[in-house]
Amino acid sequence: MSILQAVNIKKIYKSRMGSNQIEALSSINFSVESGEFVAIMGESGSGKSTMLNILAALDAPTSGEVFLDGINFSNIKEKERAAFRRNNLGFVFQDFNLLDTFTLEDNILLPLVLSQTGYDEMQTRLQPIAKSLGILEFLKKYPYEVSGGQKQRAAVARALITNPKLLLADEPTGALDSKASVKLLDKFEEINQSGQTILMVTHSVKAASHASRVLFIKDGLVYHQIYKGDSTKEEMYKKINDALTSMLSGGEDCE
């Protein structure tokens, strides 16, 4: 059963005067099955971020529809949108987006506080997640007191604590060194294996090679996709690389 469906998404930005139109997404169609780990790749300017914003209900498409678990985004009222996002989606950002006025613990608990969960319930949910992400001992620290990897794991914990239907990750390894990146991606795989659906936008072939499926976006369209199937991470890495190479050379032909 598909948990996320994007149908014919189109996004056009108008310049301030209204004379220039820029088509960020021309027609995006894809779906994500429950329990999948999907990576989306593309050059900068290919429309990745625009798409992620639309999938996160932070931005509305010019036309087309997004369904999450059968619910159409455009049917949700502005008022309920924040609650919807909070209860159904988890976010991990490239620059962590942790609040420096909160300890890691409070940062993780923030979405629960917003949905008015009781304090005891918060703690029961926090403990296993913090433990599995290996940040139990840093919970009382402030973001500026811990490393980038620890920050990002706290951000993952914050994304997961609401038990979201879909975890959206935007270049989650972008600000991490290679060691911390590998550790985070292994965590992602682990979470995925326990049944969490993940959608990750990335530049990194290495990051994408952890996914079960990779979508390539180019010029506002889904250009190509690769399934991991039974192949190993190394084989997947090579497949992705090849796909990127052909996409890039193809791109040059176009221009």
Partner: peptide
């Protein structure tokens, strides 16, 4: 900046 983050985490404009 703080409020931009909170919006992303799921705080509505009204809140």
């Amino acid at each position: 900046e703080r409020f931009v983050i909170m919006r992303k985490v799921g705080l509505s404009q009204k809140e």
